[in-house]
């Protein structure tokens, strides 16, 4: 029998007070899609569970001077249909790729981020959007970029008394392409074997700003900086896109596990990145159409 205290936080203040009191003995509960499994399997034995799903300010999302913020307790289903994510297709598609409808209806942005699985589907989209996380405690507020936040599987720079309150990113401006792709072993309820997100802009028929991030191919989700550099300022070509895929594969350092081998993960990470870049070049430079599209 597992026993713990429960705190039903009614406000952000109460959350932070409870966190200050229990520190690393506390577990935060929003949707519970990760926490319940961790408790059931004995991997987490909290002394206190603090429910944050009822805190209004953590369920808010808004746009303020071009900056979108998504509250930590916003669900994956909500991310996919909120006005503020309209046009930010990589984030919507990433949210849609998680679990099943039941899981997406309760699982939250903050949970996906704080759990810090290398395969988490929200990381690559948020990374290519250059998102920052707002972390709060009774001691104060700080902002941390995602790459700085996550260090390895389940390892983050979140302090025991801190809470992620929201993720914030600038809406891409002008004409851009954004997309997300995932390889899972089935079409629903699948943990990513590899995932990727891109945002791409073009200028004068050339790739301009290119951001690429991949998950499940290293101990933590990673930006593919070398691949980005390879593409920037180049005219799209089949050869270049293939090179981008190959370089992605090389930059990956995945593990072999029950789901897939290291070789396979590297191979398919390259495939999905080159397919996303291919889509981007078609959208931005061939058809001349405006807007953002899914991969």
């Amino acid at each position: 029998m597992i026993e713990f205290e429960t705190v039903m936080a009614g406000s952000l203040e109460e959350c932070l007070e409870a966190l200050a009191k229990y520190g690393s003995d506390a577990a935060l509960l929003a949707g519970g899609t990760d926490l319940y499994v961790l408790i059931e399997t004995g991997m987490k034995l909290p002394k206190a569970v603090i429910h944050i799903g009822g805190v209004k300010e953590l369920r808010d999302s808004k746009v303020k001077s071009g900056s979108v913020s998504i509250g930590t307790a916003v669900t994956h289903s909500e991310i996919d249909r909120l006005d503020v994510t309209e046009g930010v297709e990589c984030l919507r598609a990433g949210a849609r790729a998680i679990g099943s409808p039941q899981i997406r209806n309760v699982g939250t942005a903050g949970g996906n981020i704080a759990n810090a699985s290398p395969a988490a589907d929200l990381y690559p989209p948020l990374m290519v959007l250059d998102a920052v996380l707002e972390l709060r405690s009774l001691r104060g507020t700080r902002e941390v970029g995602l790459e700085e936040f996550v260090a390895g599987p389940g390892i983050t720079s979140l302090r025991p008394d801190e809470l992620i309150t929201c993720a914030r990113f600038k809406r891409p401006e002008g004409r851009f392409y954004t997309g997300f792709a995932k390889i899972g072993l089935r079409d629903a309820l699948a943990i990513s074997v590899a995932n990727a997100a891109v945002t791409v802009t073009s200028r004068n028929g050339k790739f301009d700003q290119v951001k690429i991030a991949c998950g499940a191919v290293a101990p933590r989700p990673i930006r593919m900086k070398e691949v980005e550099a390879l593409l920037t300022g180049q005219e799209p070509s089949a050869e270049l896109i293939k090179q981008a895929g190959d370089m992605t594969s090389k930059q990956c350092d995945p593990i072999t596990d029950i789901r897939a081998s290291r070789d396979y993960r590297r191979q398919v990470a390259g495939v999905i990145v080159s397919r996303l870049i291919e889509n981007a070049s078609r959208e931005l430079m061939m058809d001349g159409k405006e807007g953002a599209t899914d991969a």
Partner: peptide, 16 residues
């Protein structure tokens, strides 16, 4: 046995 649950023993879902 390593497949001790349905996240490691995958059966097709309705989407598959």
């Amino acid at each position: 046995v390593c497949s001790r649950d349905f996240s490691t023993y995958l059966v097709p879902t309705s989407l598959d």
